[in-house]
């Protein structure tokens, strides 16, 4: 089995949505990279193959985890970051709060009392976030401009 075929087969480790979006591109890039090495009269060095396969296994694991645990997905910030560290404006927070209240009112109107809690999960997360923010602001850890 040629290495290119093996590479293509290994792309099946990714979730379907990722495969549909990126696998043709990934294969094309790998082909170009391997082609460049062959053109220079070299066979694909073992280091390239190991790096690529490790990258795929690691990448596929991250994609599956992001799919299974959507709340804990990685962002473009470093691994220790969380989505709540994205910049939020007062207007955005108010919008999220209003949406949660509207959803509660709609649930009551539809007699859907299970979902008619005063605070949805998002609302509770938001309140915790605002509380944390107020603490940080009072401690001088964040800038209010």
């Amino acid at each position: 089995m040629r290495i290119i075929h093996f590479y293509r087969a290994s792309l099946w480790l990714y979730p379907k949505d990722f495969r549909e979006q990126f696998c043709e591109e990934m294969f094309s890039v790998f082909e170009q990279r391997a082609g460049e090495l062959f053109a220079n009269g070299r066979s694909a060095p073992i280091a390239l193959v190991v790096a690529e396969l490790t990258g795929i296994v690691r990448g596929a694991y991250i994609m599956w985890m992001a799919k299974i645990l959507p709340k804990n997905r990685n962002t473009s910030r470093s691994d220790t970051d969380s989505p709540t560290n994205a910049p939020l404006t007062i207007a955005e927070i108010a919008k999220q709060r209003d949406a949660a209240i509207q959803s509660m009112v709609a649930a009551i109107a539809a007699h859907d009392f299970i979902n008619a809690r005063r605070y949805s999960d998002d609302e509770i997360r938001l309140k915790t976030f605002i509380h944390d923010l107020q603490n940080k602001a009072s401690a001088g850890h964040i800038t209010i401009a």
Binding site: S76, R77, N85, P87, T89, A91, I142, I144, A145
Partner: peptide
């Protein structure tokens, strides 16, 4: 008055930069 505040962000990884 609409206040805009930026919550402290973490460093980017080197590949992303």
């Amino acid at each position: 008055v609409e206040k805009q505040f930026i919550v402290g962000t973490k460093p980017l990884s080197e590949p992303v930069v």
